[in-house]
């Protein structure tokens, strides 16, 4: 199967192919299917999201049907077929964070950024999303900006956090 990869960054494509190669999978369906989620994680890490070109690439590398790949992507909340913002702001909506008032924090972000949870700003700079318990419940409510964790966040701290997103 030849795959159209023109719209994908060729460096990224190379990196993903190398990654699959290094997994050293044997030809069994068990091995190829079993590697799918790991490969999708890697692909999302490289390309930021999983558009159809990436799905086709993954399917062909692992010799799986596109339907199977898409079925898996759509099942798991972590995988996204839409691009996220350059600054991915994620709120923990676990119980500790709920009890400690993450709701008010989310409202403040929505108000100041002007988008709602699950959306990306038009310039692609900021997206708002949510995660389930990052395991730092002592710092509830927790907000993650890309890999950085902000703890004990209050609505008053929101402008400061947004100032870091430049």
């Amino acid at each position: 199967m030849t795959v159209k990869t023109t719209s994908l960054d060729s460096k990224g494509v190379g990196e993903l192919k190398k990654f699959v190669e290094n997994l050293g999978l044997d030809d069994s369906a068990e091995a190829r299917e079993g590697a799918l989620i790991e490969v999708l994680h890697k692909a999302q890490g490289i390309f930021g999201f999983l558009p159809s070109e990436v799905q086709e690439l993954v399917a062909s590398e692992l010799q799986l049907s596109l339907g199977h790949v898409y079925g898996v992507i759509s099942f798991y909340a972590y995988f996204t077929t839409e691009p996220k913002g350059e600054f991915e702001i994620n709120f923990c909506t676990g119980t500790a964070c709920f009890v400690r008032g993450v709701g008010k924090v989310i409202e403040r972000f929505e108000e100041l950024v002007g988008i709602e949870l699950g959306e990306v700003t038009d310039d692609g700079r900021i997206s708002l999303g949510h995660l389930r318990c990052v395991g730092a419940c002592s710092l509830a409510p927790v907000v993650m900006v890309n890999d950085k964790t902000y703890g004990n966040v209050t609505p008053e701290m929101v402008p400061e956090i947004l100032a870091d997103c430049q």
């Binding site: 989620i37 999708l40 909340a77 972590y78 389930r132």
Partner: peptide
Amino acid sequence: IRYGAGAF
């Protein structure tokens, strides 16, 4: 190691 992907 196998990885979850955000499904409870």
